[in-house]
Measured scan of single mutants.
Amino acid sequence: VCKLPGCTKRYTDPSSLRKHVKTVH
C-alpha cells in the first residue's frame, strides 16, 4: 500500500511500490 496521504494505490511488489512513489509523487 502506498502510504502517502490521498493515495490508495496498492502494490504487492516492493520494487513496484518504490517505482510508483518515484514516478507518481
Rank of each mutant, 00 (worst) to 15 (best):
residue 4 L to M: 13
residue 11 Y to D: 12
residue 13 D to W: 05
residue 1 V to C: 03
residue 3 K to R: 05
residue 12 T to Q: 11
residue 12 T to D: 13
residue 8 T to A: 12
residue 11 Y to F: 15
residue 2 C to V: 04
residue 4 L to W: 10
residue 5 P to Y: 05
residue 24 V to A: 12
residue 1 V to F: 07
residue 9 K to E: 13
residue 17 L to D: 12
residue 9 K to G: 09
residue 8 T to Y: 08
residue 7 C to T: 04
residue 25 H to W: 00
residue 13 D to G: 00
residue 4 L to R: 00
residue 23 T to M: 07
residue 8 T to F: 09
residue 5 P to H: 09
residue 12 T to E: 13
residue 18 R to A: 15
residue 23 T to K: 03
residue 18 R to Y: 08
residue 14 P to H: 04
residue 4 L to F: 15
residue 14 P to E: 15
residue 21 V to E: 15
residue 24 V to D: 15
residue 18 R to W: 07
residue 25 H to V: 03
residue 17 L to P: 08
residue 23 T to Q: 10
residue 7 C to Y: 00
residue 6 G to M: 04
residue 20 H to W: 01
residue 16 S to N: 15
residue 4 L to I: 14
residue 16 S to D: 15
residue 12 T to W: 02
residue 15 S to G: 11
residue 14 P to L: 09
residue 7 C to F: 00
residue 23 T to I: 04
residue 2 C to E: 06
residue 1 V to I: 09
residue 16 S to H: 13
residue 11 Y to V: 09
residue 1 V to D: 07
residue 24 V to G: 13
residue 10 R to T: 14
residue 4 L to A: 06
residue 4 L to T: 05
residue 11 Y to I: 05
residue 11 Y to H: 10
residue 23 T to S: 10
residue 21 V to M: 13
residue 14 P to Y: 07
residue 9 K to W: 14
residue 7 C to A: 04
residue 13 D to V: 01
residue 16 S to W: 01
residue 20 H to R: 00
residue 1 V to E: 13
residue 5 P to F: 08
residue 6 G to P: 02
residue 8 T to E: 11
residue 19 K to Q: 15
residue 20 H to N: 08
residue 6 G to K: 00
residue 11 Y to A: 07
residue 21 V to D: 09
residue 16 S to R: 04
residue 20 H to V: 04
residue 1 V to T: 08
residue 6 G to Q: 00
residue 16 S to G: 08
residue 5 P to N: 10
residue 15 S to W: 01
residue 22 K to P: 09
residue 3 K to T: 07
residue 8 T to I: 01
residue 23 T to W: 02
residue 12 T to H: 07
residue 6 G to C: 03
residue 18 R to S: 14
residue 6 G to F: 00
residue 22 K to H: 12
residue 2 C to M: 05
residue 8 T to H: 07
residue 18 R to F: 06
residue 6 G to D: 10
residue 22 K to S: 13
residue 6 G to T: 02
residue 7 C to S: 05
residue 16 S to I: 09
residue 2 C to S: 05
residue 22 K to L: 12
residue 10 R to G: 11
residue 22 K to W: 08
residue 20 H to C: 02
residue 22 K to Y: 07
residue 24 V to C: 12
residue 10 R to W: 03
residue 21 V to F: 00
residue 21 V to K: 00
residue 3 K to I: 03
residue 2 C to Q: 05
residue 19 K to V: 10
residue 10 R to E: 14
residue 25 H to K: 05
residue 16 S to P: 06
residue 25 H to P: 09
residue 24 V to W: 04
residue 21 V to W: 02
residue 8 T to D: 14
residue 11 Y to R: 06
residue 3 K to G: 08
residue 19 K to W: 12
residue 21 V to L: 04
residue 4 L to P: 00
residue 9 K to I: 06
residue 18 R to H: 15
residue 12 T to L: 04
residue 20 H to K: 00
residue 3 K to W: 10
residue 23 T to N: 07
residue 7 C to H: 01
residue 17 L to C: 04
residue 25 H to R: 01
residue 14 P to F: 02
residue 20 H to L: 00
residue 22 K to A: 14
residue 25 H to D: 11
residue 3 K to L: 03
residue 16 S to K: 11
residue 8 T to N: 14
residue 12 T to I: 03
residue 20 H to I: 00
residue 19 K to R: 11
residue 14 P to G: 07
residue 24 V to M: 09
residue 15 S to L: 09
residue 18 R to C: 12
residue 9 K to V: 07
residue 11 Y to T: 07
residue 2 C to G: 06
residue 13 D to N: 10
residue 5 P to R: 01
residue 25 H to S: 04
residue 7 C to L: 02
residue 10 R to S: 15
residue 10 R to C: 12
residue 17 L to E: 12
residue 12 T to Y: 01
residue 4 L to N: 14
residue 25 H to Q: 08
residue 10 R to M: 08
residue 11 Y to L: 10
residue 9 K to L: 02
residue 3 K to E: 09
residue 21 V to I: 03
residue 13 D to F: 03
residue 9 K to C: 12
residue 12 T to G: 09
residue 16 S to F: 01
residue 13 D to A: 00
residue 20 H to Q: 02
residue 5 P to A: 04
residue 24 V to N: 07
residue 15 S to K: 10
residue 24 V to E: 13
residue 16 S to T: 07
residue 9 K to P: 02
residue 12 T to S: 14
residue 18 R to N: 15
residue 17 L to Y: 08
residue 21 V to T: 02
residue 17 L to I: 04
residue 15 S to P: 03
residue 5 P to D: 06
residue 24 V to R: 03
residue 8 T to G: 14
residue 19 K to L: 10
residue 19 K to P: 11
residue 6 G to W: 00
residue 5 P to V: 03
residue 17 L to S: 07
residue 15 S to T: 08
residue 4 L to K: 02
residue 22 K to Q: 14
residue 22 K to F: 09
residue 2 C to R: 00
residue 1 V to Y: 06
residue 16 S to A: 14
residue 11 Y to K: 11
residue 11 Y to M: 12
residue 2 C to T: 01
residue 17 L to H: 05
residue 17 L to A: 09
residue 13 D to C: 02
residue 20 H to A: 03
residue 22 K to E: 15
residue 18 R to K: 13
residue 12 T to V: 07
residue 5 P to G: 04
residue 11 Y to Q: 10
residue 11 Y to C: 14
residue 3 K to D: 11
residue 15 S to I: 07
residue 10 R to D: 13
residue 4 L to H: 14
residue 19 K to M: 13
residue 23 T to F: 07
residue 2 C to Y: 04
residue 10 R to N: 15
residue 10 R to A: 14
residue 22 K to G: 11
residue 6 G to E: 09
residue 25 H to M: 03
residue 17 L to M: 12
residue 10 R to H: 14
residue 20 H to D: 11
residue 10 R to Y: 05
residue 6 G to H: 05
residue 16 S to L: 14
residue 10 R to L: 09
residue 4 L to V: 14
residue 9 K to H: 08
residue 12 T to F: 03
residue 19 K to I: 12
residue 22 K to V: 11
residue 15 S to N: 12
residue 21 V to Q: 10
residue 19 K to S: 13
residue 15 S to A: 13
residue 7 C to I: 00
residue 12 T to M: 10
residue 3 K to A: 01
residue 15 S to D: 14
residue 23 T to L: 06
residue 24 V to Y: 11
residue 17 L to N: 09
residue 5 P to L: 05
residue 2 C to F: 05
residue 22 K to T: 13
residue 2 C to L: 02
residue 4 L to Q: 13
residue 6 G to I: 00
residue 19 K to T: 12
residue 14 P to D: 12
residue 23 T to A: 09
residue 19 K to D: 15
residue 23 T to V: 11
residue 5 P to T: 11
residue 19 K to Y: 14
residue 1 V to R: 00
residue 8 T to M: 11
residue 22 K to C: 11
residue 1 V to H: 09
residue 17 L to K: 06
residue 21 V to C: 06
residue 9 K to R: 06
residue 9 K to F: 15
residue 14 P to I: 13
residue 3 K to Y: 12
residue 3 K to S: 09
residue 18 R to V: 13
residue 7 C to G: 06
residue 13 D to H: 03
residue 23 T to H: 06
residue 17 L to W: 03
residue 5 P to S: 10
residue 20 H to M: 05
residue 8 T to W: 02
residue 13 D to K: 00
residue 2 C to K: 03
residue 18 R to L: 12
residue 23 T to C: 08
residue 7 C to R: 00
residue 8 T to L: 05
residue 1 V to G: 01
residue 25 H to Y: 01
residue 8 T to S: 11
residue 1 V to M: 11
residue 17 L to T: 06
residue 17 L to F: 04
residue 6 G to L: 01
residue 3 K to F: 05
residue 8 T to P: 01
residue 15 S to Y: 04
residue 14 P to S: 11
residue 24 V to H: 11
residue 21 V to N: 05
residue 11 Y to G: 11
residue 1 V to N: 06
residue 19 K to E: 15
residue 3 K to C: 05
residue 25 H to I: 01
residue 14 P to A: 10
residue 12 T to C: 08
residue 10 R to F: 05
residue 25 H to N: 08
residue 1 V to Q: 10
residue 13 D to Q: 03
residue 4 L to D: 14
residue 24 V to F: 08
residue 23 T to R: 02
residue 3 K to N: 11
residue 16 S to C: 11
residue 2 C to W: 02
residue 18 R to Q: 15
residue 19 K to A: 14
residue 5 P to M: 06
residue 7 C to M: 03
residue 12 T to N: 13
residue 14 P to K: 09
residue 22 K to M: 10
residue 14 P to C: 07
residue 20 H to S: 04
residue 24 V to P: 11
residue 17 L to R: 01
residue 4 L to S: 12
residue 9 K to A: 15
residue 1 V to L: 05
residue 2 C to N: 11
residue 13 D to P: 01
residue 21 V to Y: 02
residue 9 K to M: 10
residue 15 S to R: 04
residue 24 V to L: 04
residue 10 R to P: 12
residue 2 C to A: 02
residue 7 C to V: 01
residue 9 K to T: 07
residue 25 H to F: 01
residue 7 C to Q: 04
residue 23 T to Y: 03
residue 25 H to G: 07
residue 12 T to K: 09
residue 20 H to T: 01
residue 22 K to I: 10
residue 18 R to I: 13
residue 24 V to I: 04
residue 12 T to R: 02
residue 21 V to S: 03
residue 15 S to M: 09
residue 11 Y to W: 01
residue 22 K to D: 14
residue 8 T to V: 06
residue 18 R to D: 15
residue 6 G to Y: 00
residue 8 T to K: 05
residue 1 V to K: 03
residue 16 S to V: 08
residue 10 R to Q: 14
residue 16 S to M: 15
residue 15 S to V: 07
residue 14 P to R: 06
residue 5 P to W: 01
residue 13 D to M: 01
residue 18 R to T: 15
residue 17 L to Q: 06
residue 15 S to H: 11
residue 4 L to C: 10
residue 11 Y to N: 11
residue 24 V to T: 05
residue 23 T to P: 06
residue 24 V to K: 08
residue 6 G to R: 00
residue 5 P to E: 13
residue 11 Y to S: 13
residue 8 T to Q: 08
residue 3 K to H: 08
residue 19 K to H: 13
residue 7 C to E: 08
residue 2 C to I: 03
residue 13 D to L: 02
residue 7 C to D: 10
residue 6 G to V: 02
residue 18 R to P: 08
residue 11 Y to E: 14
residue 15 S to C: 12
residue 14 P to M: 14
residue 9 K to D: 10
residue 14 P to Q: 10
residue 10 R to V: 12
residue 19 K to G: 07
residue 12 T to P: 13
residue 4 L to E: 15
residue 6 G to A: 02
residue 9 K to Y: 15
residue 25 H to T: 10
residue 4 L to G: 07
residue 8 T to C: 10
residue 25 H to L: 01
residue 21 V to P: 02
residue 13 D to S: 06
residue 9 K to S: 09
residue 22 K to N: 13
residue 17 L to G: 06
residue 5 P to K: 04
residue 17 L to V: 04
residue 21 V to H: 04
residue 1 V to W: 00
residue 1 V to A: 03
residue 24 V to Q: 15
residue 1 V to S: 02
residue 16 S to Q: 13
residue 10 R to I: 06
residue 14 P to N: 12
residue 8 T to R: 06
residue 9 K to N: 13
residue 6 G to N: 11
residue 13 D to T: 01
residue 3 K to M: 09
residue 19 K to N: 14
residue 16 S to E: 15
residue 23 T to G: 04
residue 13 D to Y: 00
residue 23 T to E: 15
residue 1 V to P: 03
residue 13 D to R: 00
residue 18 R to E: 15
residue 15 S to F: 08
residue 25 H to A: 06
residue 13 D to I: 02
residue 14 P to W: 02
residue 18 R to M: 13
residue 7 C to K: 00
residue 6 G to S: 06
residue 20 H to G: 04
residue 20 H to Y: 03
residue 21 V to R: 01
residue 3 K to Q: 05
residue 7 C to W: 01
residue 24 V to S: 10
residue 5 P to I: 06
residue 22 K to R: 10
residue 23 T to D: 14
residue 4 L to Y: 15
residue 19 K to C: 12
residue 3 K to P: 07
residue 15 S to Q: 08
residue 2 C to D: 13
residue 14 P to V: 09
residue 25 H to E: 08
residue 5 P to Q: 05
residue 12 T to A: 12
residue 15 S to E: 15
residue 20 H to F: 00
residue 3 K to V: 02
residue 9 K to Q: 05
residue 18 R to G: 12
residue 7 C to N: 08
residue 2 C to P: 05
residue 10 R to K: 12
residue 7 C to P: 04
residue 20 H to E: 06
residue 21 V to A: 07
residue 21 V to G: 08
residue 16 S to Y: 05
residue 5 P to C: 02
residue 11 Y to P: 07
residue 20 H to P: 03
residue 19 K to F: 08
residue 13 D to E: 09
residue 14 P to T: 09
